[in-house]
């Protein structure tokens, strides 16, 4: 079972990468980009076959390692 963990800078936490991407897009002539936030996606291939248990396991992994919840939020999707 595949789990996808989306890790994003928390709302209110400065995201210098997102800012730089936003400036670069502006430089390329893309107008109307109000804000950019840059995070990461981590794909897990899990042996677990029960979606609820897989999600709980991935969330535990995110809390303990994949995200630093002081500065990042996360969301798990089961595929």
């Amino acid at each position: 079972m595949k789990a996808r963990v989306y890790v994003m800078p928390k709302a209110g936490v400065l995201d210098p990468q997102g800012k730089a991407i936003s400036h670069a897009l502006e430089g390329l002539g893309f107008g109307g980009v109000n804000d950019v936030r840059a995070g990461k996606v981590i794909e897990l291939d899990l042996a677990e076959t029960d979606p609820a248990r897989a999600k709980a396991a991935a969330e535990d992994m995110a809390r303990r390692l994949l995200a630093n919840t002081v500065i990042e939020s996360f969301r798990v999707e089961i595929a």
Binding site: V13, L14, P16, V70
Partner: peptide, 9 residues
């Protein structure tokens, strides 16, 4: 706490 990317990148 946490240590983020420098604000200037």
């Amino acid at each position: 706490g946490g240590l983020l990317r420098n604000r200037t990148l």
